[in-house]
Amino acid sequence: MTLLAGGTDLMVDLNFGRKRPEHVVAIDRVPELAHLERNGHVRMGAGVTYTRMLAEDVGSAALREAARTVGSPQIRNVGTLGGNVATSSPAGDTLPVLAALDAVVVLRSKQGERRVPFAHFMTGPKKNVRRADELVIGAEWDDAGPAQTFMKAGTRNAMVIAIAGLALVVDRSRKRVGVGLGSCGPTILRASQAEGFAAAIFEAHGWDRHLTPSEAELKEFGRLVATAARPIDDVRGTAAYRRHVLAVMGERALSRVWSMT
């Protein structure tokens, strides 16, 4: 059985004759999947579209920035969080954000609900721990406050699959830093050394303060981000460029969120 949410991934395979599933179940009009709750903790239904992420307060500025980079308005009107999660492409734009937020993927089957931390959800390119009888019904995360951002590199100014993507979340109240990397490994990667490095700086200077980071700190953070990558050469970019641009993105992201409280 094949599930169809927004259709932006599955339909390409059908149109190009790569897949001919016997049965397709469209879940794009299940109202229960389109819920969105915010109450210090965010519960986002799998059916929330990118357009909604842009139009509504979805409890993550980085997720909103990521949603703006997804495809085109036409794609954003139908593509969903759940589709991005279930497809599990390393280039899925919302996925580095979910990783950086320490989000939990919520799965449901007849047997009941299963909650899998995003860090354990993806197992490879377009591979994850979802069982055939399960449905991704949403994701949840703690509202991490305003200090977060997403960026991605691509050779076109819109409608481009990421050569590399990065999400940075600095949760000042919970005193944690999350860095998620897209398109630079078989799964979404966490830059844990970089996270630790940044957390130590915040720890030393105070989590709730505006600080101007030093050039050296930014550079080191960027370097550590890049070392977390496991990139390859492919049709969209080279491994060397991916490492390079991740370092630049890391530096820029940290200098941007530093002042956000």
Partner: peptide, 26 residues
Amino acid sequence: EQGECGSCSVLIDGDLVCACLVLAGA
């Protein structure tokens, strides 16, 4: 045939979408 060009743009329940990415049955 993959939502990258917008030539098949239509409105479904008022939303702008690429008709090539909509399963007919849906």
